[in-house]
Amino acid sequence: MELFDTSLSILQEIKLDPQQFRNVRLLVKRDDLIHPEVSGNKWRKLKYNLELAMYQKKDGILTFGGAYSNHLLAVAAACQLAGLQSIGVVRGEELTADSNENLKRCAALGMELLFVSRESYDERNEKSCQEGWKEAHPHFLLVPEGGSNYYGIVGCQEIGKELPAETDHLFVAQGTTTTSCGLLLGSDEKTKLHVVPALKGFDAIAEMRKQLYPVLLDEETMNEYMDRVVVHPEAHFGGYGKWTPELLDFMEMCRKEYGLPLDKIYTGKAFHALMEWLKAQDFQTLQTVVFLHTGGLQNG
């Protein structure tokens, strides 16, 4: 079932100074335009989870997130569009549905919000905890925080079909690695995948391998894929949820000069890493570089 038309996700060309950036064609895959509340990689990761819930005749989806979670908002909006119910387990027992605009909007979209302690939330992926949620809500499909599961990877894999055939370098902001794993599986074997972790000290390669082991069962195939991954580990601007005046100025420049809105949690940092990397290159042949805009503008 197609809820959204992904043709709205255009390839926007960024006009760069040819004197400063030689032999570079820079494109932005605007997944943020797919839907105002289920934008970017959120729709990609939810697509097959929604289809599974409907196939299994579930009442809806139960998932997890923080107070400002774009994922919770995306699930609430997507479930409403699909005619499903939604339950959001929110970190922070002191919160209510009126604590911020994000939670208010989730509630307005019909999401039932369950507020739990941080200790309980930290145990959300434990087997006993998962079984407890399933027992309490047997008619709901459990989807991990951020849509980080096999079905999320498959949804993100489809992005590869919408990229230029000759994509030399593909950049993406990285959180749970679900999107980057899907991109790795779905992109051309000649494409280098550049990942920009939002978390300080995040072991991107180890986390991607963990996600991909159920899909790529032998070590040789795994290594072939991982050889195409380039990690930019120092582009986090101090860590998750942190930013600097330099980053904010850069984002404003992108908005004015390129007509490109970015968020300060993920895409702003990743696009900054891309531009800094490009400045250090001296390409002898034309290179097509694509940046995947993963959305997240609502709370970023």
Rank of each mutant, 00 (worst) to 15 (best):
E2F: 14
D5Q: 07
I10C: 11
K15E: 09
D17L: 00
P36N: 02
W43C: 04
Y48T: 05
Y48S: 07
A53Q: 12
A53H: 06
K57E: 09
G60P: 05
I61Y: 04
T63D: 04
Y68R: 07
S69F: 01
A77E: 02
A82H: 05
E93M: 13
D98S: 14
E101H: 11
R105H: 11
A107T: 01
E112I: 08
V116F: 02
E119D: 06
R124C: 00
E131G: 14
K134E: 13
A136F: 06
H139W: 04
G146L: 05
G147Y: 01
N149T: 10
Y151H: 15
Y151C: 13
G160Q: 02
G160Y: 06
L163V: 02
T179A: 04
S180F: 01
G182H: 08
G186M: 05
E189M: 09
L193R: 00
A198T: 09
K200S: 12
F202T: 02
A204I: 02
E220Y: 07
E220K: 14
D227R: 10
R228Q: 05
V229G: 03
V231S: 01
V231N: 03
A235L: 09
F237G: 03
F237A: 07
F237C: 09
P245D: 08
P261H: 15
K264T: 08
I265Y: 01
I265D: 01
T267R: 02
E276V: 10
Q284K: 12
V290Q: 01
F291K: 02
L292K: 00
T294V: 00
L297F: 04
N299T: 10
